[in-house]
């Protein structure tokens, strides 16, 4: 598929993290953010599905079970576009390092598993820049499942992929659903040249590797917070 998306042409850098639930990506991106902040770099963090205006509709849709694969995909893209145009893009233009906990690949993987044609979803999101680095936190499916399923009271309907009718048992459904997403991620990782991080290691070891890659691939000095004149101590 030729649809690779637009290269980032702003002064900022876009770093996305992707991976299965339980892959540890949120922990890693949090630590990455703390490191950049504490080292005095201009960094901005953004999460999937966090914009206010679309949230109530998504909530109603999920509660009343109104969502179909198509509307599920569209409403998430709407939410993403809102966040992209009001947060991500301005911050990239302002020359920030933008860290995205999940990016359009999350949608590509999930929506494809739900049955939407991948070209269609790819086109929907074609307005969004391709990240400069996409970290893919990869680990064996079984390990990811164990991490999520141990000590969790109940899986939410869409989280478990219950809308796909894979199994009446939420846990069973979740396992099949995650398995399919895992397959999609693997395909996306090849097509979009993700930077694969072996996530089946101690947190500190992974973080060290992630930081090393960032130092290597990005001229971090350009992203130092400038201290305005007269504020120097």
């Amino acid at each position: 598929m030729p649809e690779k998306g637009l290269p980032n042409t702003t002064p900022g850098k876009l770093i996305a993290v992707e991976g299965l639930d339980g892959s540890g990506k949120s922990t890693q991106v949090y630590l990455l953010k703390r490191w950049l902040e504490l080292s005095g770099y201009k960094v901005f963090f953004t999460e999937w599905n966090s914009s206010g205006i679309v949230r109530s509709a998504t909530r109603r849709g999920k509660k009343q079970n109104l969502l179909t694969p198509t509307t599920f995909s569209l409403i998430h893209c709407t939410d993403f576009a809102d966040r992209y145009e009001r947060n991500i893009l301005p911050m990239l233009k302002a020359g920030f390092i933008v860290l995205a906990d999940r990016y359009k690949f999350t949608a590509l993987a999930r929506d494809t598993v739900r049955g939407c044609p991948q070209e269609w979803v790819g086109q929907l999101y074609s307005f969004a820049f391709q990240p400069d680095i996409t970290f893919y936190f990869s680990l064996p499916l079984r390990t990811a499942l164990n991490r999520i399923l141990v000590g969790r009271p109940a899986l939410k309907y869409h989280e478990a992929g219950m809308d796909l009718g894979l199994s009446p048992d939420p846990v069973e459904s979740f396992k099949i659903f995650q398995g399919r997403i895992h397959k999609e991620y693997e395909a996306l990782a090849r097509r979009h040249r993700f930077t694969r991080i072996d996530s089946d290691r101690p947190v500190e070891v992974i973080q060290e590797e992630v930081r090393a890659i960032l130092r290597d691939r990005i001229d971090l000095a350009k992203y130092k917070v400038a201290v305005p004149r007269g504020w120097r101590v």
């Binding site: 205006i53 679309v54 509709a57 109104l66 179909t68 198509t70 509307t71 569209l74 409403i75 893209c77 709407t78 576009a81 809102d82 145009e85 009001r86 929907l124 307005f127």
Partner: peptide
């Protein structure tokens, strides 16, 4: 909302009625 967001919002509204 930006034009793109509004556009996708309307597309969602349309898809819901379509289905």
């Amino acid at each position: 909302l930006s034009p793109r967001t509004l556009s996708l919002f309307y597309a969602t509204d349309f898809a819901d009625q379509l289905e």
